[in-house]
């Protein structure tokens, strides 16, 4: 038997590279997330418009991000099962590496989505970010937290028979604290309030807790 020579970090990087390569060729998640985000963004800009209060604008931005993320990230593991690659991956790769690789891919996907969505939102909603650094920190920590939760629930969904129901039931309650903090921080980024950094610390803590819990539980879910 050949002796392994690398650790979980190298294996996670391999999973990330594989997912990026598959995505660049199939564009499945990019198309799902992008189409949803653009449609929602246009609908929101027509309904709410630039006259909306900053708290409403922030909430709408995160709603668009959340539902776009749900449409793409929720398929991380379902795609493995549908493509009949899940069992081979389960036997070849360690659970930690698989979770971290797929979570990293989802963070990159969300940041790419933010890169398109936020400038579009700025133009269509005519918003001015008084604290751009706070906005960037909110999007980064919020994306990591969102990816940590949705990557884990995607694994649960992929192993469940009633896929859609499980995803909604598990993901939404877990994401409520993230949404509350992300909306508050984004509102502060619009208003220029320093209180937003307090919420960013909360988002970072949320992401850290969710990553830790997911890593502890993932092996059970993955090998169930």
């Amino acid at each position: 038997m050949a002796q392994p020579s690398s650790g979980w970090a190298a294996e996670a990087a391999a999973v990330l590279r594989k997912d990026l390569r598959v995505e660049l060729r199939t564009r499945y998640a990019l198309t799902a997330v992008g189409q949803f985000a653009v449609t929602c963004l246009v609908a929101v800009s027509f309904t709410a418009g630039p006259q909306a209060q900053s708290a409403v604008q922030a909430a709408l931005l995160w709603l668009v991000l959340l539902f776009a993320a749900l449409s793409g990230l929720a398929r991380s593991f379902v795609a493995e099962e549908d493509g009949r690659t899940g069992e081979t991956l389960r036997l070849a790769a360690g659970a930690t590496a698989v979770y971290l690789g797929k979570c990293a891919f989802n963070v990159l996907l969300l940041l790419a989505l933010c890169g398109v969505l936020v400038p579009g939102y700025q133009v269509l909603m005519d918003v001015v970010w008084r604290d751009p650094a706070l906005l960037l920190a909110t999007l980064l920590t919020g994306s990591i937290g969102l990816a940590a939760v949705l990557t884990f629930t995607s694994a649960l969904v992929a192993r469940a028979q009633m896929r859609g129901a499980v995803g909604a039931v598990v993901a939404f309650p877990l994401l409520i604290p993230l949404l509350v903090m992300a909306v508050a921080a984004t509102t502060a980024a619009l208003d220029g309030s320093l209180q937003g950094w307090y919420h960013v610390r909360g988002l970072a803590a949320f992401a850290g807790i969710m990553l830790t819990v997911a890593l502890l539980l993932f092996e059970v879910v993955w090998n169930a």
Partner: peptide, 9 residues
């Protein structure tokens, strides 16, 4: 891919 996730050079 499968070599890398199995830790093979």
């Amino acid at each position: 891919f499968y070599s890398r996730v199995r830790g093979l050079p």
